[in-house]
């Protein structure tokens, strides 16, 4: 069973008012479910389908198209590491490997304590401050090994 929290419900009320067609709310609702549980469960898809008059299969179809939606558990912190051209030109591969080694995981994995998930991402649109990564909702730019050390060390 999946239920939206009370605060989510308040946001849903606002979201539904934005669109003349309920289905438009699918991405915001999926995002909301993910914010609540960390990832999107099949039960959440069923519930969202009910809210927007769509089949659960439809919800899953849309959900699986967009890479920011996780359908498996992720860590408390998710690092999205840009590996596209501008970051690559400035050594992101080395930094990504450095981060993976430091966390003792492979790219795509979550640390054993479920704290950090490390993902590679396509361009994050902060190219003139490359290399870049996104940690949950926050961008970290002009990365260096030292900066990565600092960032990772600051996580509780």
């Amino acid at each position: 069973m999946f239920t939206f929290s009370e605060s989510s419900e308040k946001q849903i009320e606002k979201i539904m008012k934005k669109y003349p067609v309920k289905r438009s709310a699918i991405l915001p609702l999926l995002a909301l479910a993910q914010r609540q549980d960390g990832y999107i469960t099949p039960e959440a898809m069923v519930e969202i389908g009910k809210r927007i008059d769509c089949s659960p299969a439809y919800v899953q179809s849309v959900c699986s198209f967009y890479t920011m939606f996780y359908t498996k558990p992720v860590g408390k912190y998710v690092i999205q590491f840009c590996i596209n051209i501008s970051c690559h030109l400035l050594g992101c591969d080395d930094l990504l490997e450095y981060t993976a080694n430091k966390l003792n995981i492979k790219v795509g994995e979550t640390t054993a304590d479920n704290k950090i998930t490390l993902l590679k991402e396509e361009c994050l649109a902060e190219c003139s401050a490359a290399p870049v990564m996104r940690l949950n909702d926050t961008y970290h730019t002009n990365l260096t090994r030292e900066k990565i050390d600092q960032i990772l060390d600051s996580l509780d």
């Binding site: 396509e122 361009c123 649109a125």
Partner: peptide, 11 residues
Amino acid sequence: DESEPGTCKDR
């Protein structure tokens, strides 16, 4: 939806 690699002007 600024996503074109190299582009960060709209942000």
